[in-house]
Amino acid sequence: MKWSEFFTSSVGRKFVMGLTGLFLITFLIIHVSINACIFADLPIFNENDNGSVFNRAAHFMGSTILIRIMEVGLFAGIILHIVQGYMLELKNRSARSVGYAVNLGERGSKWYSRSMGLLGTIILLFLVIHISHFWVKARITHALEPVTYNGVEMHNMFEEMKMVFSQPWVVILYVLGCISLAYHLAHGFQSAFRTVGVHNRKYNQLLTSIGYGFSIIVSLVFALMPVAMYLGWVK
């Protein structure tokens, strides 16, 4: 089989989905770690931080050449993951057009593993809004208020987050996006590892448990950010 045929085959598409999925999981770890810096403003840490830790971390990510190059790869990975995901979804739907004689329901697979296309679409819509709120303003229009630390001027992303998350509908939208992400990761985490060959009966349960833990922790931290800012926990 030629390489071109492999990447257009069902197996090849799943392999690409697995690789890009693992890449995006790595990105989520970095992204949630940077964003969690907003909690440095909590009274138990430093209530006078005023977003300093978060702004400096965000500035480092946005001004480092290597990170900016990786950003291009990130967008390529996201687009490839989306395209291959929809191609697989269409192929699966056409294969299921006749249906099964017996509906196994939850005994066959979890509802979220059968709804990856829907969950992915919700996450895509959320991602478009998220990018327009922050990435476009920071990288394209430069429409963010500046702040200076130790003589270095940078975007005040912290104040932008406070403004964006002052709107109830935005907070609700972000929380719904995070819930969709949790279910998407609940299946996608272990599926990505299995697709690239990390599949051993002895460790399957451990991998599944790690996947559930990852999906809950990451999505919960992401959801807590808009909630914390809207409720005034972080000021």
Rank of each mutant, 00 (worst) to 15 (best):
I69Q: 02
S215F: 00
F23D: 05
V221P: 03
F27D: 06
R68Q: 15
Y100H: 12
I210P: 06
V170T: 03
T26R: 13
G177F: 01
F214G: 04
V72C: 04
N92A: 15
S132F: 12
L74M: 13
Q205S: 15
P226H: 04
F134N: 07
L90P: 04
F15W: 10
W111D: 12
F45C: 02
G232Y: 12
V83W: 05
V98T: 14
L42H: 06
G213D: 07
G188T: 03
V102W: 14
N150L: 09
S33A: 14
L173C: 11
M1Q: 13
G211L: 02
I67K: 06
I129W: 06
F189G: 00
M17K: 00
Y230S: 04
R201T: 10
G120W: 00
Y174P: 01
A101L: 10
F158R: 03
K162C: 14
C178K: 00
K14T: 10
W3M: 10
Y230F: 12
G62A: 14
T148N: 15
L90R: 13
S215Y: 02
S63N: 15
F158E: 01
M61I: 04
S94K: 14
E47R: 10
S33N: 08
M116N: 10
L90C: 08
T26H: 11
I123Q: 10
I79V: 14
F15M: 06
V147L: 15
V128G: 05
R114S: 11
V175W: 06
Y174E: 07
E153C: 07
V227C: 06
L176R: 00
G197D: 08
S115C: 11
C37V: 05
Q84Y: 02
V221H: 00
I172L: 11
R56Q: 15
N48M: 00
F54P: 00
M163S: 13
L144W: 01
H59L: 12
L220N: 12
L176C: 05
